Amino acid sequence: MRLVKWTSTTAALALLAPATALLRFQCGQLVIDRLDPLVTPGANPSPHLHQILGGNSFNVTMDPAKDMAGESTCTSCQFSEDFSNYWTATLYFKAKNGTYKRLTQKPNAGFDGVNGGMTVYYMQDGLYNFNQTSKVTAFKPGFRMFIGDVNARTQQEAERFRQLTFTCLHNFIDRDPQTLDFPTVPCENGIMTAVRFPTCWDGRNLDSPDHMSHMSYPDHGTFESNGPCPCTHPIRVPQLFYEVIWDTAPFNNKQDWPADGTQPFVWSFGDATGYANHGDYLFGWQSDALQRAMDSPCYINCPTLKTQSVAEMNKCTIARRVNEDIDGWVNALPGNHQANYIRKRREWLSE
């Protein structure tokens, strides 16, 4: 198991930092559905199940030339000018008898009452630096990106990506240790998934065929250590970071875990290692709202942005397009075979 260091002191500061730090907010659940307009646009259903947040213009196919903010009439996110869409795969518990049950998400500390979803960060200088003095360039209309590899099943494959991790939460403050694979012990307060996107943009392309090549990690070090961007990707953009807390409480009895002692959780596309952790993003902020926020002293509250109530966030939902059981115990994961998914994904990427 690969451990990634994040001290408890740092985590505590992240939750208690003054209002001059970084943009941190909760997005409620827009829909849980088998759609993916970034990786498999037009596919209805897409290969695996996702939990989706943000603007209600989310659809089977999302034309980058269209104005997402203009087409949406509501958002499930705290800031009402943010009609972006954020999504990850969903997480399942696999019982001894081979059946599966989807885990629900619960809100992060400080966001009581929000319907599941996840915490979203946009940062100028990373979570370790609360001065937030660096200049970053906000994403542009039509921008989109993906991080991770759904086919990764080894530590070496996961290490291609920086800072895609899991934390076994014993409380809402601890973030240490972080691992690249699933926790192997019951987690009293759930499993936290962390998805951190690259922070250097080529300055030209709003997307790329793999949805990653137009972005890069710093030339050396990390975003938090102020590593410089490579000359191929010279534009420093905000650190986009997701925290998803999966409620494992109903499944923490080790008597229900596999008899061989292995951990029982599996991604909705069949990965039981955790190494295939990944996330998707479609930019959809109104006008210059994100740049204003990045140029302002913001944290949970941001004076330059419009904030909506928890009730308004929770009210913004859309109907599911794919009719299948996502709440009960099922004999197979939605979309069925992982091998079939891998074959299809290779076909899509080769087209």
Rank of each mutant, 00 (worst) to 15 (best):
D260Y: 12
N252E: 11
G261W: 03
Y275S: 09
V237Q: 07
Y275R: 12
A276Q: 09
F251K: 10
D247H: 11
Y275M: 10
F241C: 00
P230F: 10
A249G: 05
A249I: 06
A276D: 13
W246S: 03
V266L: 06
P250W: 03
N253D: 15
N252Q: 07
F251N: 10
Q263Y: 00
W257Y: 04
H233V: 05
D260G: 02
K254H: 00
T273L: 11
P230A: 09
A272I: 06
G279V: 09
C231P: 08
F241Y: 15
H278Q: 15
H278W: 06
T232H: 13
V244I: 14
L282I: 15
Q255M: 04
P258V: 05
A272R: 15
T273S: 15
H233P: 02
K254I: 15
D280F: 02
D256K: 06
A259I: 12
P250E: 13
T248V: 05
N277I: 13
G270Y: 11
T232A: 13
F269R: 04
K254W: 00
G274A: 14
F265A: 04
Y242G: 02
P264V: 02
N253Q: 10
W257R: 08
C231Y: 11
N253M: 04
A249L: 09
P264I: 08
Q239N: 03
D280S: 11
F251Q: 13
A249P: 03
G274R: 14
Q255A: 15
D271P: 06
F265H: 03
A272W: 12
T248M: 04
T262I: 01
G270K: 11
Q263S: 04
N253R: 10
Y242R: 04
D256V: 00
T248L: 07
G279M: 07
P238D: 00
H278S: 14
A249V: 13
P264T: 01
D271H: 08
W257P: 01
N277G: 05
P234L: 11
G261R: 03
L240Q: 10
F269C: 02
N252A: 09
A276R: 05
D280G: 01
Y242A: 05
A259T: 14
Q255D: 14
V237D: 08
L282P: 06
I245C: 09
L282K: 09
T248K: 07
Q263L: 01
W267I: 04
P258E: 07
A259N: 10
A249Y: 05
P250D: 06
Y281H: 13
P230S: 12
T262A: 12
Q255Y: 00
W246L: 03
E243R: 11
A276H: 09
F265G: 02
C231A: 11
Y275W: 06
D256W: 03
I235R: 07
G279R: 09
W257C: 08
T262F: 01
T232V: 02
P238H: 11
E243W: 01
W246K: 01
V244P: 02
S268Y: 00
C231K: 12
L282D: 06
I245M: 08
A276S: 15
G274T: 06
G279D: 13
I245F: 01
T232R: 07
W267D: 04
P258I: 05
D247M: 06
L240S: 02
L240A: 03
Y281C: 08
P264W: 08
V237Y: 03
C231V: 14
V237L: 03
Y275H: 14
D247E: 12
N277D: 14
D260S: 02
R236S: 08
V266T: 14
F265M: 01
N253Y: 01
